[in-house]
Write a protein that binds this DNA or RNA. Structure first.
Lengths: 176, 176
DNA sequence: GGAACCATGTAAAAAGTTACATGATTTG
DNA sequence: CAAATCATGTAACTTTTTACATGGTTCC
């Protein structure tokens, strides 16, 4: 239920075309709510039909032609209402932890290499977050908006740090 | 693509009926791969049809009658093959981090209370994990199976610890 | 004019959620 | 025997994923 809200947020940050949104769902906003271009185009259509966003009149509405969207007041209200709504954390669904549990039953051959591979991936992601931190949040932000965005980034940093710590320990445990 | 494997793992740990599986998906295995009874029954049907599991002949196959399943060799092989397969971490999709990012744009009214609510939920979950740790993994397990299962539990513990740390910091940041 | 890429989509299938249905067993 | 609970399912819907389709623009 959150994809439309992710899109509204991204469009409020900056009016964009579908492809631009897709690119931002591969970095920025997509670090916390991932999506594909197919889902994004479909959802843009729904949001437009529902009167939450509109296509800027700059472009002709033909296939293959760029179409920019901006958020309408109804869209901003909808987003503000969603932000105010309580919502429980999602139950965890993690394939690696599940795989480890399965490995406890059928044997853990090859798990070591897989854990090291994941460790490298998480280290790369952490490095990316650190770059963003240095580029966008040094010195520390002073506005409310900046502080909130920094908190979100730190969520990503802490999450990757958790994975790196756990994986490192798991690798040591399996070897020793 | 992991639900059938979660079920195979659970059934290898202990042959069960659909409802027993459902209960275990509310604690144990479900801490890392959550599911509902509807999905579980549907998947049990598919797994049986595919020859990965079979119903124990103890019970009559009538509606409302308990039906116990056990894993067949083909199911164990399938699970072992899946464990050996590399698979990238899922892209993150977290509603709270997304909501925080939206709050940076439309204002963060009420976020403080919501963060405190989440903090309490994660503290409860951590306490539950700690109980399991004390009950099942003290003293430290010596078998490979035990050590792997303990690693999975520590994954849960570390994950909750991450949330508690981040939420605590976020609450302080918002107030200050 | 062909290749590469920009840009927007459609279609179908799989996975997950929500609401409801139904029979069996236990317990007051 | 009524209510609660155990136990297994069906149906409809939403969300997500995967594969494919199509037109426009740029650059060699």
């Amino acid at each position: 239920m959150s994809l439309p809200h992710a899109i509204l947020t991204a469009l409020l940050e900056k009016p964009s075309s579908g492809l631009e949104l897709t690119r931002r769902f591969d970095r920025s906003i997509g670090y916390f709510w991932s999506s594909t271009h197919q889902q994004i185009y479909r959802e843009l259509g729904k949001l437009e039909e529902a009167g939450r966003i509109r296509a800027l009149p700059t472009a002709t509405p033909a296939r293959g032609q760029k179409k920019e969207y901006e958020v309408l007041p109804a869209g901003r209200e909808e987003l503000a209402a969603w932000v105010a709504l309580p919502e429980d954390p999602r139950p965890v669904r993690d394939p690696l932890l599940l795989r480890m549990r399965a490995a406890a039953v059928v044997g853990a051959s090859g798990m070591g290499a897989e854990l090291r591979r994941h460790l490298a991936l998480h280290e790369r992601q952490l490095a990316e977050y650190r770059e963003i931190e240095e580029r966008d949040f040094t010195p520390a932000p002073t506005t409310d908006e900046g502080r909130l965005r920094y908190l979100v980034l730190r969520g990503g940093i802490d999450l990757e740090t958790f994975w790196i710590g756990w994986l490192t320990r798991a690798i040591a445990d399996l070897d020793g």
